[in-house]
């Protein structure tokens, strides 16, 4: 099942609260323990990008408006 969408996390805003990680229905997200944001947090990232549907729940619950959501337009790609 190919990914239906993807997200971008703006690391300027992300504070690693982990709410998006918990709420993602498809376990797409995790905190990146290898990286630190400018504020010193481990940012959220797509650990399992293939499962992303672009549903936007992560962006809805994000308290810092750090997430941008995209959905693939496959019809356009096939056309």
């Amino acid at each position: 099942m190919p990914a239906k969408g993807y997200i971008e996390v703006n690391e300027l805003f992300c504070k690693a609260c982990e709410i998006c990680v918990t709420d993602c229905p498809f376990d797409v997200l995790a905190l990146d323990m290898e990286r630190l944001t400018p504020k010193g947090y481990h940012p959220a990232y797509m650990v399992n990008p293939d499962a992303c549907t672009g549903c936007g729940i992560c962006a809805t619950v994000c308290p810092d408006a750090a997430i941008t959501v995209y959905r693939y337009d496959r019809k356009k790609a096939e056309a």
């Binding site: 969408g5 993807y6 703006n10 805003f13 672009g54 936007g56 962006a59 408006a65 750090a66 997430i67 941008t68 959501v69 995209y70 959905r71 693939y72 337009d73 356009k76 790609a77």
Partner: peptide
């Protein structure tokens, strides 16, 4: 191609 569905 992808379309933006949500941004700050």
């Amino acid at each position: 191609p992808a379309k933006l569905v949500y941004e700050r």
